[in-house]
Every structure is written in structure tokens, then in C-alpha cells.
Design a protein around this nucleic acid. Structure first.
Lengths: 160, 160, 160, 160
DNA sequence: TTTT
DNA sequence: TTTT
């Protein structure tokens, strides 16, 4: 059930390796930095390139797969929705973030280093994968008790 | 020509009447505040509603039509792309904005006050409509010489 | 998991009331006839309208909701995928069908007769709704034993 | 201007080299056979693959570029709309075709034989490219006077 | 067959 | 700030 449609479709290249973190509950939260470049002509007919860097979040199993298979430079298809967040820093200054929350991911192209061929994945249920597989995430160990989010981190209260 | 895909599809309701402004060159820049609401279930099975407010920009003829026909509360379909902007305020603090730049608009539903029935419009060329039609925008008069943007406002340098 | 993207987004009006049928297992299969009209200019600058009639299939709970709330004339948002089917008739002639299989539906506009306001629904699980609710479908009674599909009808072998 | 939305997004691989033809007016009409594969689980939990073969049409400059750069096996992103056509054969039997008419194309992946890296193209104007470039299409020579469509072929009357 |  |  919903009221409205909030859909984003991106095809772009990763500017960096994925960052994988875990909630206290063991759910992966993976962040991608994804570039899409568009070209338009200015009034003089000159081509102007503009690159947008999207911050893409993948949760649960989808985040684990992204952390495992994606690499800097890799081309990827993302389907998801836009989420705007406001976060008040310790200095009292409000900061705004815009994330693309991924529902689906498709690795594109044949490979490169991050490779192994393409394939698609849906983020239909986040909770079914709360136990990260041993072999998956390289960049941060699955949490034992505490983590970056502090002890009071809860699933419905993600501050970034 | 492009490298990548950056596509947004929204169906939502306007939180306010459109804001129409004009560049020095006479091009309309219309801003919509568009709500999309999604519902998900938390771990207790309770429904949680979350509304995202999108800032949608429509340029040129598309902006004129939006300013003319859309109204607060009206339901609309928007297709466009995400644009992230950074703007340094006079206090030296960097501010971040995320806009949805519309390529296409469809008025939905039968109408209401903003009405006149549905219909769709493409923003294929911004320049063909640099002279705003007399009857269109109600919220701000078409510019004679100067405008809100200051005299040095240029088409390729829109700060918001 | 998938290899490739097959996504369709439609906003259109129903040409008729939905048709609801049931599989032997009790799963609703609802068919919509949905019109989308586009306008282009021919070489003489004259506007040419062309209407495409999409055959949209909604399964399970999504199909039940569509059968219950949608009506002829109603405007609706559909997200789904394209499915091509070949079916050999009893005369031995092959017939081709193209369906849009809906994953998500949003009723648009304020209502009309089919009304009751808007709202969105996802077709994430078909099976969870194998028992159609009593009040829902008007056009065909939920099946007792046999149905239009014959006794050997199976979930994975839908011939239309 | 339009009434409704008819949008298709595909990411798939070409089953064959593109077929390029030309209208009498010299406009390219290129046809792609594009595979998208989806995977779902049946009731026994077994994975079932299903491949849809889309017939994609690209007109004008977009068709020329597709004919020039795409090759069998290449992965491509297509954005367009669905078009249903009915054609009565000489035997009096009606035949139905479903085409995806492309508005935009993006070559994906690093290349392979059809390669040369990725890049995106829009089909904004068909007519601006009525004179096919000499080096482009390999599969059929640009027409001198007549062509496959017969002499009475007209832009608004494409029978396939 | 819808809608404007 | 919308809508249901």
C-alpha cells in the first residue's frame, strides 16, 4: 500500500569500492557512490558534461551481495527510491542527505576485477538475511555486540 | 549522448501552488513541492507511513504550463532526473540541494480547482518558449529587465 | 535474481471493467484493458493521436484489489513487465499475445464510480491470498472445484 | 502533449546483429532482438528461468547508431514505449506484432566485438538524420530510389 | 473499449 | 506543505 510513486532508475559506474556496515541486528547496510554523466549543449552548441554522484544504499541481502561482488569502476543498474534525510550534527547544524534506497541491482558488463559476469538481485526482504554469510563482506567484520551506530541503534532509527 | 542513466518517476500531490520565476532571458523556472508517501511494516507488523517531499524543477515551456495549470493538492506524474547542487551561502556555509529536473509532466485525475482535466507535456526544448505567454503565470510577472536572480544571472549558472 | 531488466510503466484509463477469473488453486487472475494515448506531429505539423491498448494481468491479491476497486474509465498507474506468449489454437494456428504482468498498481485521481480514493498496492506475493475474500470479486464467483481453465489447470501453465 | 504514460525500460543482450533498413525517405529503421531473462521460484522452490525476446525498433539517427555499434551478444539499455500493430497478411489472416519503439539507447559494458565502450543516445528527432552516413550501416545499402517497402511507402504508414 |  |  502506498500513495504515490517514488522510483529511481540508475545506470552508472562506482566511484569507489562499496562500503559495508552492519546494524546491531546484523543487517548489512552498503553504500555505493555511483556516477551518472549527462551531456547537453549550451547556447553556443558546445557540449557540456555533468556528472551526478548518487549515494546508493542497499540493505540486507542486497547489501551483502553488493559488498561482495561490486568494485570501483564497475557498471551497475540500480532501481530504488529517493529518501531525503535531515540530521542534526553535534554542532547543532542541520545537515541534509539524499539517498537512493535500492530495491534491485543488476551488475552490468562482463566484469573487470569486480567481475564474475552480470546478474540481478532483488531486495525484497531485508530481514531474511540478518546473519551475514561468512565469506561475504571484506571491508568490515560482522558485528559481535556493538558497532558504529552505538548500542541503541535500532532498525527503524537509522540516522544516515 | 550520455554515459549512464539518471531517471526519476514520481506520482504525487502538490503541497503548495507552484512557484514560478523567470531568468533574465525570460525562461520560466517553476518549482513544485511534491509528496510521495510509502507504507511499510515495522517488525511488529505495524504500518509506518513515510512521506518524501521532492523539489521538482520545470524549465521553459514545461514550467509555464505547470505554473498555469497545477495547484496545491493536485496529483501529478513527473519524469525527470536527479540533480545534486552545492551552494555556498554568504555565511560561508555550504548548503546542499537535491532537485528533480522534470522532462515530462502529466496532470492526473479529473481536476479539482487546478483542474481542466489531465494532459501531458514534454520539456523537449526550453528555448522555444523564452517569451512567456501573457496569460500564463500568475505568481510573478514576466520580467522586463531585472529579476530575482540579479542582473548577472545567466542561463548556465543557476544557483538553486 | 535475474539477468536483464524488463520494466513497464503505464498510466492510462480502463476501457472496461476488470475481468476477474480464478485458477483452480483459487488465485485471482485479473485482466485490464488499459489505454495510453500519445500525440505526435506529422510532417505537416498536424497532431496525430495514437492509442495503445495494453492487456494488463494482475495475479493474486493484486488482482483481487483491482477487481474490487477499479472500474471502466478509471485512471491507474501500473508497473510491471512485458510477457510474450504463443498459444496454438484448436485450429492449429499459432496466436501471439503480449501481456503486461503487473507488480504494482496505483489508483489515480479522486475516484469517480470506481472510486474510494487512490492508493497503491504491490503484488509481492501471489500465494498469500489464495483464498479470495468473500466480498471482493463481482464478475465471477470464486471457484469451488472446476473452472474455465479445466481441471488440469496448473499454476505454472497458464495458457493466456 | 499526451494522455497517459507508456514507458518501457529494458536491459538485455542482443540475440543477433541489428537489422537495418531504410525508408524511401532515407530514414533508418533498425530492429533489435533483445533478450531479458527473469528468474522466479515455483511452488517447489525450484528456480525457473524465462527469457522474453523483445523486438526493438530504432528510427532515424538512433537506428543508424544502433546499426553501426551494436552486435550480437552486446548488452544494451533501451528506453521507449510499447506499440501494438495488426497486419493483415496476403492470406487474409491477421497478424499481431508488439514492438518496443526506442527513444533512448545506452551501450553497456566495456565492449567485446561490437564494442568501443559505452555511450548513450537519444532519438529526439528522426528527421534530422534522413541522409544516412556512408560508413554506418553494413547490412543493407542506403536506398537510391525504391526499397523493400515499395514505392508507395510513406512515413506514417509503416506496416511492420 | 478509456480519457481529454 | 499534499493526498487517502
Amino acid at each position: 500500500m502506498a500513495r504515490g510513486v517514488n522510483k529511481v532508475i540508475l545506470v552508472g559506474n562506482l566511484g569507489n569500492d562499496p562500503e559495508v556496515k552492519y546494524t546491531q541486528g546484523g543487517m548489512a547496510i552498503t553504500t555505493l557512490s555511483l556516477a551518472t554523466t549527462s551531456v547537453r549543449k549550451d547556447k553556443d552548441g558546445q557540449q557540456i558534461e555533468k556528472t551526478e554522484w548518487h549515494r546508493v544504499k542497499l540493505f540486507g541481502k542486497l547489501g551483502e551481495i553488493a559488498g561482495e561482488y561490486l568494485k570501483k569502476g564497475r557498471q551497475v543498474y540500480i532501481e530504488g527510491s529517493i529518501r531525503y534525510d535531515k540530521f542534526t550534527g553535534q554542532d547543532g547544524v542541520e545537515k541534509y542527505f539524499t539517498d537512493i534506497v535500492a530495491d534491485e541491482m543488476q551488475m552490468l558488463g562482463g566484469g573487470g576485477e569486480g567481475g564474475g559476469g552480470g546478474g540481478g538481485f532483488r531486495g525484497s526482504d531485508r530481514s531474511s538475511s540478518s546473519a551475514p554469510r561468512q565469506e561475504a563482506p571484506r571491508r568490515e567484520a560482522p558485528p559481535a555486540k556493538s558497532n558504529d551506530f552505538g548500542d541503541d541503534f535500532a532498525d527503524d532509527d537509522i540516522p544516515f
